[in-house]
Amino acid sequence: MPAFLAAYDFLLVSMVLAAVLALSLYLPLMAGQLSLASPGFYALGGYIAAIISTKVFPPAAGLYPVPLVLLEMAVAAVASGVLGVIVGVPALRLRGIFLALATIAFVEILRVISLNLDVTGGAIGIFGVPQPFASQIHYMSLAIPLLVLCMLFAARLERSRTGRALVALREDELAADAMGVNPTRYKVLAFTVGAMIAGVVGALSAHFINTWNSRQGTFDTGVSLMAFVLIGGSRTFVGPVVGGLVLTALPEALRGIADVGGLPGWLAQFLRDGRLIIFGVMIALGTVFFPHGLITPALLERLGRGRRHRVEAA
């Protein structure tokens, strides 16, 4: 196990962070809003943490204090929340693909700004972001609670009045409006909470990958997040979590398989060089064979029933 952890500590934490980010996209989608703004807030959070930890606090020997990381995460959450409201109020009048495009435009504008500011370091970005932990796997002590908190929040939300209002908005906005659900309020709420989550993940990620630059949190990230949510399943919060975990691991799992001895040379070579061909095909096949995502509410119910049966039988 230690050898496995040493080799895959970074990947494991990446998977958890991807799952949290996927939830940040899932929340607005609960209300039927396809927003690809999460990468923008993720980038913002990362810059906030990188700037605070390298420029505000002078570098010191030893590990960077964890409370300061928590502080950065809090600052990132607040900043992302404020920006979320500012962007969300006008943008959320848009629907469907138009909202998606407006949020893509937002992400792209942020990227160009970060390329041009001095404080963000242009294309080179900010490097030498200090480490709060001696080992990568210790990032789990922040990533796991973050994931659990977000999952609990999503689970409670799905069962709450607000959650039902969001789902009502997704199913039929006009009807929901007629039933007294205030669409703008709930949509902005879901969008803003998603933005805050993305900002927090960004802040943690800047430490986690040692550096931050304008290549983090771009349109490509947004597209990946969308794949996490839709392949995982967009009708329950478990879907995006599973999607984020599985799809982040997949390219590296293919690399791992290639390294296993005993495969014919050409196959190992193809697994290595053609890793992304296989990845792309698997995504396409995933949508064909799991049109509602890997995880659906019906599947969860079946699993839940199965467990109850077993408990009763025992």
């Binding site: 839709l230 992304l276 096949l285 064909v288």
Partner: peptide, 10 residues
Amino acid sequence: LVSSLGVAVA
């Protein structure tokens, strides 16, 4: 959208 993305990557 996602399936066309997968095909594009491939």
